[in-house]
Design a protein around this nucleic acid. Sequence first.
DNA 1: AAGCTCTGCTTTTTT
DNA 2: AGCAGAGCTT
Length: 644
Amino acid sequence: MRLNPQQQAAAECTGQHVLVLAGAGTGKTATIIGRAAHLLRSGIQPRRILLLTFTRRAAREMVARLERDVGAGSRGVVAGTFHHFCLLTMRRQPKAFGLVDATVIDRDDQLQLVRLARAEQRAKGEQFPQASAILNAISYARNTNAPLPRYLAKHSDWDEDTTRRVLLVAQQYRDRKRQRGYLDFDDLLHRFASVLHKEPAVRARVAGSFDHVLVDEMQDTNPLQWLIVDALRASATLFCVGDDAQSVYAFRGADFRNVHAFAERVPGAAVLKLEENYRSTQPILDLANWLLDGSSLEYGKRLRAHRGPGALPRLMDFDDEWAEADWIAVDLIERHERGTPWRDHMIITRTAWAARALESALVERDVPYRFVGGTQLFQAAHVKDLLSLVRAGLSHRDELAWVRYLTLWPGIGDVRAARTLDTLLPQPDLPQALDTLRAAWKGDARVHEGPRQVWLGRSQPAQVLTDAIRFLEPLLERRYDNWKDRKRDLALLAKLAQRHRSLPAFLEAYALDPISSSEASRLEQDDMVTLITAHSAKGTEAPVCYLLRAEPGLYPHARSLGDLDQEEEERRVLYVGMTRAMDTLILTRSCRLGGHRVFWGGAAGQHAPGGSAYLLEDLPDELIDSQPAPPDPWDDDEIIVPFG
DNA sequence: AAGCTCTGCTTTTTT
DNA sequence: AGCAGAGCTT
């Protein structure tokens, strides 16, 4: 791989900590990979290089590219998400981190726990914050390393009494986690950071195992992650890459001061810039530059296209989302027929939900596609059902799994499940708990058999999964009307389990990475259109990009209206979306801008002073090729035939 | 008393 | 797709 002089200089700048400010498409990944390759060539041992990314996608891509560039010499480089790295390290020395016998839980499990606590605080029929809202607040405070009461006082509009009870919910959530040995995603970072902070010996051991730490997407790191990077700096050299204009995870506590204040926090650090864009043609970048110019913040960024001129981005208006979706599907088919492979097309959506019309159009027109981001296909209910049985068969203390498994049975609801669990929990181990269950349960005798099968066969993950599917089949078939389709997902899961030595390892890997959708699709076919959320799209590119529903209510998202920081983040989300396109950028919208629409979310167009209710409001004509809406193919007005 | 089924509501972004 | 609530069934 060839680097330009700036990239080269960055990759080879050794002897001090480095921050690289890299605009969209300027070869950020190439540079970080180039850096790793340079270190390996200069004799650094692979296992002394740590490569931290923010998303699993980025981690996978980095590893693949590094292997392609360096070959087997890259084996042993430690690469993964922050969460992954923390868990891995803590699993190696469980005692030092107090991690013996802990189960990692995903967001669904978290929500379930919060729901239980919430039910106790909420009066019947009363308006009370949703479990997800409470969990978001808990998580945000945690990731920004701020006490929850202070965070709520500042950022929520809940009244005093509600706030008091939300704090009780949070307290209970914590207690329940502790009692059951559950660790949520935030705990992974928090536990790791706090032990590194409090135990100099542990810190020295962890930090001392690396010479170089490479951090991707630095603008997305949150204060907790900063503490981790900061601890590693004690004996390793940092190489951080980021772009403040692409910071889109503030909702998760990301703090781009980690980029802005880098030089002050890390004395003697070199700050380098990459500004030449290699991805897109100039008109696409002109549009992106215009978008940033409209901000009240100063991003100090002007993307220059190394590739030079090209076609103007297009803007298409439609009557409704169905017409829009169908037009895109047809356009994709035409491009495909003209010889462009499906994989060269990417459709970028603000939310998973906003793409529902598009998904049905793609299905209807037989366009092969995969969805990246949003709620994963594999977090589906039937997968959770299966995994709940597996988890129940490994520990009688896993309350969430047991309740889910038990309520699959006809005649068992929340109440009976909870009561049954009260008898299981005090038992010393699982076999005895199962005996108790068999003795106490008057109904279907098979209830205890499923977990028992798992327990007995637990040394062979793939076989356990296969047996568990067979065991659950009658129950699930009754429950879901499209069982045949769902069964295929489960079979895939059993196949993936083959790769893991133990069931807990499989479950933990799954919790952190609920089946790489990439893997799932690779098992099927390669050439397909990518439908992707703007957040997930960061770091990707495609020759042809559609920006779906680039309309008021979505850019900025209605929920962000009224908060200047959030509105500003929406600008960056749109910026990320636009700068994915290499040759062709097509923006589509599906509402008539003339007729004022009231958007859900309450705020109804009330944007913050200095912000904007619609980011493409004053789009200059010369930057875009505006096209009138094509006739509505679904127009079902009666055709009046004149008689003579 | 507990579970089941129907209906209406509500959907940001991710580890 | 999943939740909450109402009303019905076991």
